[in-house]
């Protein structure tokens, strides 16, 4: 936390190395979160890249207070939410209704390289409704509280807790099924 504040302070003063360090520190966490949320590597990569570019452009606005990791996670969640909304407007199927699963074959220009567990998890997550998926991912992976997630989802804490329970139960049964196979 203190280290983050120091890096942000340096970054605000124009230190490029500080930005590089922040990027190195959080890229994997954000990619993993994005992959869990969208089950599409290229979309996840685009989203994380956009978040970092947006962050790099907002040196003037970034404040020293607060938790940077949670801020970046919220940015990722919001961007995915926006993309989902945009796609739903233009297409009949959104990223929520994915028929595809993550391919084992890596593209040459692919940024994220997923472990088997993550690919399995991402495919399992894709089978639960997006709101539930978002709550489970942000809670399990992003270490966010239900209150913080409720704020992102613009819902009550009870609703969020309910989504978590349903999501977790479904994920558990899917993973049990997958693992048992």
């Amino acid at each position: 936390m203190v280290e983050d504040r120091l890096l942000i302070w340096k970054f605000k003063l124009g230190n490029r190395d500080a930005l590089r360090q922040l990027y190195e520190k959080y890229k994997n966490d954000l990619l993993k979160l994005a992959v869990s949320l969208v089950n599409d590597i290229s979309t996840a990569e685009d989203v994380v890249q956009d978040v970092f570019v947006g962050f790099a452009q907002s040196a003037e606005k970034i404040q020293l207070r607060g938790n940077l990791k949670k801020y970046l996670i919220t940015c990722v969640a919001n961007r995915i939410r926006n993309r989902k909304r945009d796609r739903q407007r233009h297409e009949t199927s959104g990223i929520d209704d994915l028929n595809c699963t993550i391919s084992d074959v890596n593209r040459p220009e692919q940024w994220a390289i997923l472990s088997e567990e993550l690919a399995l998890l991402s495919n399992a997550m894709a089978q639960i409704p997006y709101e539930q998926r978002e709550v489970v991912t942000l809670y399990m992976q992003g270490d966010m509280t239900f209150r913080q997630i409720a704020k992102i989802q613009n819902a009550s804490i009870n609703t969020v807790q309910g989504r978590y329970r349903y999501g977790l139960n479904k994920l558990r049964s899917i993973l049990n099924g997958e693992i048992d196979q």
């Binding site: 930005l19 994220a112 472990s115």
Partner: peptide
């Protein structure tokens, strides 16, 4: 569940970020 990144692409993304 681990994730890794392609170093070549990593550098390319970082360049984009630094340019921005």
């Amino acid at each position: 569940a681990a994730i890794d990144t392609n170093p070549k692409m990593d550098e390319a993304v970082l360049n984009k970020v630094l340019i921005a």
